[in-house]
Simulated scan of single mutants.
Amino acid sequence: MKRMKSYSLVLGASFVSVLFVVMLISLVYTPHPPNEMNIRERLQAPSVRHWLGTDNFGRDILSRVMVGSQTAFEVGAVSVAIGLLGGFLVGTLAGYMGRWVDELLMRATDALLAFPGILLALLLVSISKPSLFQTMLAIGILSIPSFARVIRSGVLQHKEADYVKAARGLGAGHANLIFVQIAPNIASSVVTTAALSFSTAILIEAALSYLGLGVQPPDPSWGRMLNEAQSYLAKAPWFTLAPGLLITLTVLGFNLLGDGIRDLRDKKS
Rank of each mutant, 00 (worst) to 15 (best):
F115R: 02
L156R: 15
Y163A: 09
A81K: 05
P184R: 00
A94V: 04
N176D: 08
I186F: 06
R168A: 15
S128F: 10
G95P: 03
R152L: 10
T71F: 01
F133M: 06
H174V: 11
I127G: 09
P184F: 01
I186P: 14
S128V: 09
L177P: 06
T192V: 12
S126N: 11
V78S: 06
V67G: 01
V164Y: 06
T71A: 12
G117P: 05
Y96T: 01
A114L: 07
N176R: 02
G154N: 08
I182N: 10
D102V: 08
V101Q: 02
T192E: 06
G95S: 07
G68A: 01
K159T: 05
F147V: 00
L177T: 14
H174K: 10
F179N: 01
I151Y: 06
R59G: 05
S188R: 11
L105C: 09
L142I: 05
Q181H: 15
N56T: 12
G154K: 07
T109Y: 01
V101K: 00
L119G: 08
D60A: 14
I178P: 01
E160I: 00
G87A: 05
Y96L: 05
V150Y: 13
V191A: 11
V190I: 15
L122H: 07
I182Y: 08
S128T: 12
A138G: 15
T135V: 14
N176F: 14
L112H: 02
I82K: 00
L132V: 11
G173F: 12
A114N: 06
F147Y: 14
H174G: 13
A138Y: 12
A121D: 12
Y96F: 15
T135A: 11
L120R: 02
D162E: 13
L89W: 10
T92P: 02
